[in-house]
């Protein structure tokens, strides 16, 4: 083989290497892992997210929910919260109520929320005698399992949040016929002077 020929074949080899290596593009942007809820061809149902197996506790679940959810082990006649009532519990309850319930029940609990005005069937007011007498566990039951036309909220709300909302509904009910005597002595002056309502 002549010198020139050898040089030429070397060159061709180099060119081939470059061409081949540039053909395998590294797709760093789309890596071989599934993002939450991404579709997947791997599982028969076409979803990458796996449904929760009945009776199992998701990892990290106990961290976010102080009380692990045992299926159906609460008492719909329970009169009390399974944890101490604090101001934080009520404030959490109000925040969650305003997000998940007020769209239908209205912030006052009257039952004329925006979705009802758009045509959803009207829920009863929380201030009826029957619901005022209902035990706290009844509200938890309704949130967990639904009630007639009312959808269930166990997927969106943790156990603690559902109890917090139940406590807040009770507070809404009590606020209806509260008298000045129910207000702590040091706050009465503020109320009487027409202090800000929050």
């Amino acid at each position: 083989m002549t010198k020139a020929r050898r040089r030429l074949s070397g060159l061709i080899l180099c060119a081939a290497c470059v061409a081949l290596s540039s053909a395998c593009v590294q797709k760093m942007a789309s890596q071989p892992h599934e993002r939450p809820l991404q579709a997947s061809a791997f599982f028969a149902d076409g979803q990458s997210a796996r449904p929760r197996v009945f009776g199992t506790v998701p990892s990290g679940y106990t961290r976010n929910n102080a009380r692990v959810e045992p299926p159906q082990s609460f008492d719909p006649d329970a009169q009390d919260l399974p944890f101490p009532l604090t101001r934080e519990v009520l404030e959490r309850g109000r925040a969650r109520f305003d997000i998940y319930c007020a769209v239908c029940h209205a912030r006052t609990g009257e039952g004329d929320g925006m979705i009802v005005r758009r045509g959803f069937s009207r829920p009863p007011s929380y201030h009826t005698e029957r619901l005022r007498q209902a035990p706290l566990g009844h509200f938890f039951d309704v949130e967990t399992n639904g009630y007639g036309a009312m959808p269930r909220y166990d997927a969106q709300l943790s156990v603690d949040d559902r109890w917090s909302i139940a406590a807040y509904i009770r507070a809404l009910q009590l606020s209806r016929d509260a008298t000045l005597d129910d207000v702590p002595a040091d706050k009465r002056a503020e109320l009487q002077s027409g202090g800000q309502t929050k």
């Binding site: 809820l37 979705i115 758009r118 045509g119 959803f120 069937s121 036309a149 959808p151 997927a155 969106q156």
Partner: peptide, 14 residues
């Protein structure tokens, strides 16, 4: 992301 059941909370009627 909302599940279909979440949409149906309202759209069962609306």
């Amino acid at each position: 992301m909302p599940s279909t059941a979440t949409c149906m909370n309202c759209h069962s009627q609306i």
